[in-house]
Simulated scan of single mutants.
Amino acid sequence: RMTKYYVVEVEYCGPNPYDVQNVDIDRYEITTTPPRISATGDVCTYGFLGTYNNVARYALGEYDSLAAAEYSVQTESLRGHQYRRDPEEDLPPDVQAVYRLGRYAPVTDDVLGQWLENSVDISADDTDTDLVRQAGALRYELEEEGHYCVTPARMLSALETLRDKARRGIDD
């Protein structure tokens, strides 16, 4: 019997999607184990598999080769996006490949905080518009310098936190 390969989309669907612990859950897995519907245990090669702990799973097809499965992920699901592949040594035995959106891994809260404190000068007078303007450029800069990615919402939130700190400093 020839080995079959299955593509499964894993997607975070819970609260606070931009929090660092949730932002990198989304992925496409290529596995040699047929996906099963969580409610019934039935094998399902295309369709909704279920949700558990705020994570939804979808079967996206069955393929005769790893190359065909990878091609489908790269040309259909990830078409037009930058993506990265997890290192093979990090994968469970039945998982052949994992693809995630984005060129780089998400930045941790600590690294983002340190980087911003060294990279920007946020004052108590900065308006929301000022912060929005800075957020885009800073996201690009962080990616180029630090090889991390950050969502627009998360970057803006971090800048607002710095502005709030500056405002509290004035009030004290």
Rank of each mutant, 00 (worst) to 15 (best):
residue 1 R to F: 07
residue 2 M to W: 10
residue 3 T to W: 02
residue 6 Y to V: 07
residue 7 V to K: 06
residue 8 V to S: 08
residue 10 V to K: 11
residue 10 V to G: 01
residue 12 Y to M: 02
residue 12 Y to I: 06
residue 13 C to T: 15
residue 14 G to F: 05
residue 14 G to R: 03
residue 15 P to W: 13
residue 17 P to K: 02
residue 19 D to G: 09
residue 21 Q to F: 13
residue 22 N to M: 03
residue 24 D to N: 13
residue 24 D to V: 01
residue 25 I to H: 06
residue 25 I to G: 02
residue 31 T to Q: 11
residue 35 P to L: 05
residue 35 P to C: 03
residue 35 P to D: 08
residue 38 S to Q: 13
residue 39 A to I: 09
residue 40 T to G: 02
residue 41 G to W: 12
residue 41 G to N: 04
residue 41 G to A: 02
residue 41 G to M: 09
residue 42 D to M: 03
residue 43 V to I: 15
residue 43 V to E: 14
residue 45 T to I: 14
residue 46 Y to L: 09
residue 48 F to A: 06
residue 50 G to P: 04
residue 50 G to Y: 14
residue 50 G to E: 12
residue 52 Y to H: 08
residue 55 V to N: 08
residue 56 A to R: 05
residue 57 R to L: 03
residue 60 L to M: 14
residue 60 L to D: 10
residue 61 G to S: 09
residue 61 G to F: 10
residue 65 S to N: 12
residue 66 L to M: 11
residue 69 A to D: 15
residue 73 V to P: 07
residue 73 V to T: 09
residue 74 Q to M: 11
residue 79 R to L: 10
residue 80 G to H: 11
residue 80 G to C: 04
residue 85 R to V: 12
residue 86 D to F: 04
residue 94 D to I: 10
residue 95 V to Q: 01
residue 96 Q to G: 11
residue 97 A to W: 10
residue 97 A to D: 05
residue 98 V to W: 05
residue 99 Y to V: 12
residue 99 Y to H: 08
residue 103 R to C: 10
residue 107 V to L: 04
residue 108 T to C: 08
residue 110 D to T: 10
residue 110 D to I: 13
residue 110 D to K: 03
residue 112 L to Q: 08
residue 113 G to I: 01
residue 113 G to H: 06
residue 119 S to K: 05
residue 120 V to K: 00
residue 121 D to T: 14
residue 123 S to W: 04
residue 124 A to Y: 14
residue 124 A to P: 00
residue 127 T to E: 09
residue 127 T to I: 00
residue 127 T to P: 00
residue 127 T to N: 07
residue 128 D to W: 01
residue 128 D to H: 09
residue 130 D to E: 03
residue 132 V to R: 04
residue 132 V to T: 11
residue 133 R to W: 08
residue 134 Q to E: 12
residue 134 Q to A: 07
residue 136 G to M: 00
residue 139 R to V: 03
residue 139 R to T: 08
residue 139 R to S: 03
residue 140 Y to T: 14
residue 140 Y to N: 04
residue 141 E to I: 03
residue 146 G to R: 15
residue 146 G to W: 01
residue 146 G to E: 13
residue 150 V to C: 12
residue 150 V to E: 03
residue 150 V to A: 05
residue 152 P to H: 10
residue 153 A to C: 03
residue 154 R to T: 12
residue 156 L to S: 01
residue 156 L to C: 02
residue 156 L to M: 06
residue 163 R to T: 08
residue 164 D to N: 10
residue 167 R to L: 06
residue 169 G to R: 10
residue 169 G to M: 11
residue 170 I to Y: 04
residue 172 D to S: 13
residue 172 D to T: 10
residue 172 D to V: 07
